[in-house]
Amino acid sequence: MSADRIVGLVFAAFAAALMAGAKALPAGIGKQPGAGFFPFWIGVAMLLLAAPLILKTSPEKAKEPIRWSRPALVAGLTLVYLLLWGSGWFALRTVVFLALLLRLLGESWRAGLGVSATLTAAVVLAFQYGLRVSLE
């Protein structure tokens, strides 16, 4: 299946869900449009716009394959960092997170630890001490 067709199908599915959700909202009183009016017609427009992409038959140029491993690892690492948000030890957690991130991106442990400590210190100074935002 071509990439454009997949894009069209994803948008069409989103449009269908939007229309269904809008139908469940109040339709309005008399001739006054209600909460579901605007999102419903946005859904209709999206469905109409997605149709040509789904029906498109012209061949596409081959695209460079995506390297999923690095972004997936970065996303996974970030997910863990986010799940631990609010558990205290912000500075330590952040230094470890950034050092691991930089290691994943090919930096040496030494450079990674140095950069992550510097960046964390800058953020703590700017936000926690400068702007009085509690990061813990």
Partner: peptide, 15 residues
Amino acid sequence: LKGLLAGCLGLALAT
């Protein structure tokens, strides 16, 4: 088409 779809997605998220 993709630009218009992206615009509609923005409009939908704004609701």
